[in-house]
Simulated assay, not measured.
Amino acid sequence: MDLGAFAEEVLDAVAGICGDVVVESQTQAAHVIDALCRRPGSNHRELAAVFGVSPEQFEHARARGKEESKDSVYTEMCRLDAVYTWNALIQRINYAAHWREEFREMQNAGDGGTSSEEEDEVLQELEVQAADGENRQPDADGENRQPVLSKFGLAIPSLAPQASRAKAKLLLEKQLDGAACEVLKGRLARRLEAEVFEHLPNDKDYKCCVRGLVANLRRNPMLAGGYVAGRVPPQWIVLADHEALATRMHQLQRRALRTECLKEVRECEEAEKARHKQWAVAKGHGLGRVPDLLP
């Protein structure tokens, strides 16, 4: 799925249904989602991956959290999960319109901000500081800094350091080819990195997410081009499932494989039902009464 074209379809659906560029209520969001699901060739699993929710959450939200169960606790949990999912869907639908305005302001802004050379200088300074920190003598415990512990004795995860963030900006900037100017490309890289840090401030999760984004942007030029052109919001790139960020060929292959697996499962279920029926007949279960042939 081309996220840039999908963002255009989302904006068209919102404008046609809501008469505005944003969604303001759950009812409007439900109509928009239904319109997107009725598109030719649409796949509910891929839509859920784009919006960053699980397929189960997506289907529960479309069903308005109604679950046929006698357990009141489970029913209430399904309803609350549907409310949370709808809030997330409304927020991520509106990201498309908000990003258009933000990208337009980013284009119309002056040439302020740090250039790539200044970014390199900052990175070199941070690397020198990191090297100096590594060369320091360890303390009595064999470490330069003790981890911060909570009141329960658990280690609090450390935030991503500035050196890692500077490296991430440079790596992301290298994958954003096709920008109108180097200044705009630097701003887009900083905006995407800031979005990653906002949602994943932990150092380990931050590095893992950045590595995944760099790989997806390198393998999927359509994704990088859509972001550089201002069509794909950075929030979608960060929050979307890895399946939505893959290339179109990989998505089609995954869809074909999933279809074949479901077909095999259905055939296995039908064969199993026929086998059970044959065994029941062989054992004499479920047979009708033998007609009385004698006069």
Results as ranks from 00 to 15, higher is better:
L36M: 07
R45A: 12
V73L: 13
I33Q: 00
A61N: 00
P55E: 03
L80F: 12
E8Q: 05
L11E: 12
E59H: 01
E56S: 11
V22C: 09
A15Y: 01
V32K: 00
E67K: 11
E8K: 09
L80M: 11
L47R: 09
D81M: 12
D20W: 05
Y84W: 15
T75W: 14
A82G: 08
T85E: 04
R39P: 03
A5N: 10
T85F: 01
I33C: 02
C78P: 00
V50D: 02
A5Y: 15
E24G: 15
V10Q: 10
A7D: 01
A61C: 03
R38K: 14
G41K: 10
T27Q: 15
G19V: 06
S42T: 14
G41L: 03
E76N: 13
C78S: 07
C37Y: 05
V21W: 13
D81R: 12
T85R: 05
S72C: 10
A35R: 15
A29F: 02
E59V: 11
E59L: 04
K66R: 14
M77Q: 09
D20K: 12
C78K: 07
K70A: 14
S42F: 07
N43T: 04
V21Y: 14
S25N: 10
R64E: 04
T85Q: 07
V22S: 06
R38W: 06
H31P: 04
V83N: 10
M77G: 11
R39Q: 07
A29R: 03
G19H: 10
Y84E: 10
Y74M: 11
I17T: 06
T75N: 04
E68T: 13
C18K: 09
E76V: 14
C37L: 13
L80C: 05
E9N: 08
A5D: 15
A30K: 04
A7K: 01
V53Q: 02
T27V: 13
D81N: 06
V32W: 00
V14I: 10
A7R: 00
H60L: 06
A5Q: 08
V21C: 13
L11G: 08
E68M: 06
S25A: 09
E76F: 09
Q28I: 07
E76C: 05
